[in-house]
């Protein structure tokens, strides 16, 4: 096990950037469950679709203008908007039929989405892993080299987390979303058009996930099956943090991201197992998660 400060620091940064991705994907998952009581198993598959769309738009742009990190920005924005629209459409046509249904029915629908979207990806992009290669010089930090793009990811993750917090804490729509986490019936009885809130929450959650997939393309190649690894970890994050709590999701993302990153250093095969040991411990100690509240309807 390497113990020099440099490699510990690298592990910390890679853990933090991983935490940002976990947060951006899990926050939507948590909000969707908090507001609509829907477990969206296809959440990470939509994340993956966002990554593929970003890749294609970037490749198209790079074909015209040459390889540049700046071209990633319009590609990410376009894919985020595309997934917002796709998320809205999926909620309006399919997910809304699941409200109030039992978990197995929700699982059937969202699992079907995983298979359908997975096959569409296979059809359009093939089975090979894709990545965006950008000429980024590693930066020396305490005798080791760190990819400076990790700092960018951490900063962007914090900014989006801040924007999401601002939306939920300061805007009227955000306050309605928080109220709906507590009682959908009451929000509806106030005359607020709750179906629009549902569509917005679903679309926003999916869009934020797609955004993170695009931002991560320069450091991790995307491929089929990655959605399954991610969704499992995101469920762990959301359960640890408490369903419906954004602060809880943020703290749990940091915890899971950093613990995972250091576990890889110490015991690579057991990294995921350690996450689940934490999960079980939290469930025994606080079944509603670190920052969650006991459920109400």
């Amino acid at each position: 096990m390497p113990t020099d400060w440099g490699s510990l620091l690298i592990q910390l940064f890679s853990g933090l950037s991983r935490a940002m991705m976990l947060f951006l994907v899990s926050s939507g998952l948590s909000l969707i469950f908090g507001v609509m009581n829907i477990l969206n198993f296809a959440h990470a598959t939509l994340w993956l679709l966002g990554g593929y769309i970003t890749f294609s738009i970037y490749t198209l742009l790079a074909g015209y203008y040459g390889v540049s990190i700046l071209l990633l920005a319009p590609a990410v924005v376009a894919a985020t908007l595309a997934l917002f629209a796709i998320g809205w459409a999926i909620e309006r046509t399919l997910v809304r039929r699941m409200y109030g249904r039992e978990l197995p029915e929700q699982l059937l629908l969202t699992f079907a989405l995983i298979l359908i979207i997975g096959d569409l990806i296979r059809l359009f992009w093939g089975v090979q892993n894709l990545r965006i290669v950008l000429p980024i010089e590693p930066m020396p930090v305490l005798g080791s080299f760190v990819n400076p793009y990790l700092f960018f990811i951490i900063a962007v993750g914090l900014i989006v987390a801040g924007l999401l917090w601002w939306f939920l804490a300061r805007t009227r729509t955000g306050k309605i979303v928080r109220a709906a986490v507590y009682s959908r019936d009451m929000v509806s009885a106030l005359g607020i058009r709750i179906p629009n809130i549902y569509a917005l929450v679903f679309a926003l959650g999916v869009a934020i996930a797609a955004f993170s997939a695009g931002v991560f393309l320069p450091i991790i190649p995307i491929g089929l099956g990655m959605d399954m690894d991610l969704i499992v970890q995101c469920f762990a994050v959301v359960v640890i943090g408490g369903f419906g709590s954004i602060v809880g999701t943020f703290v749990a993302s940091l915890l899971v991201g950093i613990v995972y990153s250091f576990s890889i250093l110490i015991w690579p095969d057991g990294a995921l197992a350690i996450i689940f040991v934490i999960l079980v411990a939290v469930l025994i100690w606080r079944p509603w998660g670190l920052f969650g509240t006991e459920m109400r309807f």
């Binding site: 009227r172 306050k175 309605i176 928080r178 109220a179 507590y182 009682s183 019936d185 009451m186 929000v187 106030l190 607020i192 509240t293």
Partner: peptide, 14 residues
């Protein structure tokens, strides 16, 4: 069914 994590003012304004 007062929204518990919204302020009194937000509960009214919403």
């Amino acid at each position: 069914l007062i929204f518990p994590d919204l302020s009194v003012r937000d509960n009214l304004e919403i």
